[in-house]
Every structure is written in structure tokens, then in C-alpha cells.
Design a binder for these strands. Structure first.
Lengths: 220, 220
DNA sequence: TTTATTATGTTGTTTTTACAACAGGAAAGG
DNA sequence: CCTTTCCTGTTGTAAAAACAACATAATAAA
């Protein structure tokens, strides 16, 4: 397994020359751990100073509510990172990170990541920029989604999402990266109800579509 | 107006001695600007390298959709910051920041904030930790809210929120910081529908409440 | 204390959504 | 080519939510 090659694909090591990764890792108190299948890497209520990056295998992020109901929040694959937020905030984890299969994780001390080393190495500076960018990107994604799903009706959610896509592409005609089921899941509505709402909107002349290509029309 | 005193209340300057703020500000290429009422500080599609902190006055963060409908996303008061995410990501703004009254803003170059200065001053290091913590906190808040509002029914949203509060306080009896209308807004449901759902849940023995104090019961 | 004002709960009606079941069409695989 | 599978749209029904209107309780103000 070529650690450096995997890290190149992670957000944290963006624009850091592969040749410098080795040096950086010791600076970051990096350590790798191997976990068996179904192993709980981080449990609810736990604190940590380390963020993790998956080197091989996969893991789920899982929430439990008061009654013990499980929800899978996300699935992590190779080069994905986790635990940045709890490491940065020093707050207890509200989720469980549990392996789906035998998994190898690279842990990095978050304090080392956000502290420029005494040598003042330039790559370390890139790390800081990358982690700030990583957190900001997550933020923007969440806010964007929030703006759609806080709408009360299926129609409003659709218009919110579709109009944002139209704005993004600067065109009233555009394609979306979802099929109907994925779009319904993203907007937290029911697929068939969404489908019929779409037809209704089409019959009202609000929009037109074929497959995943939509065209919006101005209101008169 | 005592800038230092205001900044003490901001997240970015947490745990930075007031005596050092003056020095830091020049390091951060700080500049203040005064804006009249209804002035657009940042418009949609604009890029910026600076984050802002309100020194006096107030501003709204506003979104416009494809059809021009306005939504007020948030209201900013004294010591609140804005534009961190777009400055960090170097992505164009998707919102408008517009003053509600005559407003004074302190702008800080984000690159200077996340870059340790040559003098390697320790306070600068605190800044980096603070902005990382600020971004992380926002992240956690958003994820927490997302977990509640992605639930399909009013009942599920209530249970999701209330059970999290119960877990947080480590007690089946706890108070929430919202009145009914605020709770409904937070969970994106209708107040009276939520009220009647609460009574229904009480009659089913799921929970008990008086005012904003709730007690959850285990399912049998 | 009395009066406003606000917060909360209740009920009935209308609208919207969820759900289930199915039909037609497109894509994939043999 | 034919089958199989998946994706999408349609419809009817049951369930849930929104809405409006009002009752009552709690709080603040006069």
C-alpha cells in the first residue's frame, strides 16, 4: 500500500508535493492502526485530538437516538477523512465511527496540523490552508442543502434546488447529477410524490424536462 | 467605539489578550469601512479575500432564487463575523450581505489570518485555532439541525430533537431554549400542528412536558 | 388589580404528502 | 433479438400536515 499515493487524493494533502509527505507525517505525529470488521473506532461521547484518514477499507458514521434507533449518516471510503470537527472543537463525538470491513486508518494529531512547526516548513502552511478549506467546503455544502430542505412543500424544495442549479450554470437549461430517487432523497421527499409534482409543474408551464435535463421558465 | 473591547466578544479573538489585539490588527491588514443603510457589502457572485466583523450596526444575509424571491438567512449583530467561508474557499458568494442601518465593519485579510506571520507571534497561532474552531462549530450546528429536519414527519423531528437534548443533558428531564414558535421554526414545521402532535405523544405516554421542560419515557 | 399581550393548546377543514400498486419506456445483458 | 431490470410517471387511497379560528393560560404592563 502506497500511503503517499493515497494521501494525494485526500483534501488535506492537496497541492503538497508527494516528496514532502513523508517528512510532514512525522511532524504530524502520524500513526496507522488496523481495525477488524465492525470495530468501533470512535464511540459516542468520546473526545479525540486526532483526525483520521482511511487508507484502506471503509467505515460508516452512525447516529443513535434516545431510543437506540440507528441512522447511517455517511459512508467513508479510501482517502476520506473523519473526526476533524470533534478534534477541532474538542467536543465529544455525537456519532459512532464503525468499520464495515478490515480497515487501516492514518491518524494525525490535529494540534500539529493547525500549528506551524518550528522549522516553519511551507508545506505545513499548506496543510492549514487545506484544512480550513475542507471545513469551509463542508459548511457551504451543508448550508446549500439546508436552504432547500427547510422549504415546506415538495414544490418549493424543487424550485429552490432547480433554480440554484440554473443560477450556477447561468442557463435556464441544465442537467442535474441525480436520478429521481437520488433527488428525492437529497430533498427529503417521496419519489413518486415528487414525480407527480414535477408533472404538475410542467403542465403549469413552470418548467420542462426530459430525464435529468431541466428548463425553467420565468413567471409572467 | 472601543474596537478591542468589541473584538473580545468575537469568536475569532477568543483567548487573545486585549493588549495584543492592536498589534495583530496591523498584521491582518485590518481596515474599517463605514456603510450607509441598505448598502450591499457583498453581492452575489463576488469573490473576496476578506472576512468581516461587525463593529457597530447590523446587516442581513439574504438569498435570491431564480425568480428573485428573497429569503433572509441570518441577521448579523455587533461582534458577528461573515464571509469566512467564501474567503476561505475562494468561491463566489451565493448570498448578499446588506446593511440594515449605518454599519461599521472591520475587514481582515483571510490569508493573513491563516498564515503565521514571519515574527511567529503566538497570538497569531491562536487566531488559526480560533478560525478552525469557528468553522468546526458552525459545521456541527448545521449537521445537528440537518439530522432533525431530514426526518419526514413532525413526530420524528420532535423525537430526534428531544432525544438529542435528553442525551446532551444526560437526563430524561430537561429544558429547551425555545418557545413553541421557535421550536417549530427550528424544526421547519407548523406550530399548531406541532402542538397537537405533542399532545398526542403525551397521551400515548411517550413523554411529558410543562412549558419548555420535557421528560421522555422509554418505549416498552 | 385589571387589562393587554403573548404563548400555548384544541378542533375542524382543506391541502398536501406518503404509500402502494402498476404501466410504459429505456437500458443492460444475454 | 428477446428478456430482464431499472427508472420514471401515474393514479387512488390513507395519512399527515397546513391552515384558520378560537379557547385558555401565562405574562407583562398599566
Amino acid at each position: 500500500m502506497d500511503v503517499v499515493q493515497i494521501l494525494e487524493r485526500s483534501v488535506l494533502f492537496t497541492r503538497i508535493q508527494p516528496g514532502n509527505v513523508e517528512d510532514l507525517l512525522s511532524c504530524l505525529k502520524a500513526r496507522t492502526s488496523t481495525f477488524p470488521k465492525d470495530y468501533t473506532i470512535i464511540d459516542e461521547g468520546e473526545y479525540t485530538d486526532e483526525m483520521g484518514i482511511i487508507l484502506s477499507g471503509s467505515a460508516n458514521i452512525v447516529r443513535h437516538d434516545f431510543w437506540g434507533n440507528r441512522t447511517v449518516v455517511a459512508n467513508l471510503g479510501v482517502a476520506d477523512s473523519f473526526a476533524e470537527t470533534i478534534a477541532c472543537t474538542q467536543l465529544p463525538s455525537e456519532v459512532v465511527v464503525i468499520t464495515c470491513e478490515p480497515t487501516i486508518v492514518l491518524f494525525l494529531n490535529i494540534h500539529q496540523v493547525i500549528t506551524t512547526c518550528r522549522k516553519g516548513c511551507v508545506h505545513h502552511q499548506s496543510l492549514i490552508e487545506n484544512i480550513v478549506k475542507l471545513l469551509s467546503q463542508k459548511n457551504l455544502e451543508l448550508m446549500k442543502k439546508m436552504n432547500h430542505i427547510t422549504k415546506r412543500s415538495t414544490r418549493e424544495k424543487l424550485l429552490s434546488y432547480l433554480s440554484e442549479e440554473a443560477k450556477k450554470r447561468k442557463s435556464r437549461t441544465f442537467s442535474i447529477p441525480f436520478d429521481r430517487q437520488q433527488l428525492a432523497d437529497y430533498l427529503c421527499v417521496e419519489r413518486s410524490a415528487m414525480s407527480s409534482e414535477l408533472s404538475k409543474m410542467r403542465s403549469e408551464g413552470l418548467l420542462e424536462y426530459q430525464k435529468s435535463t431541466f428548463t425553467l421558465y420565468e413567471e409572467e
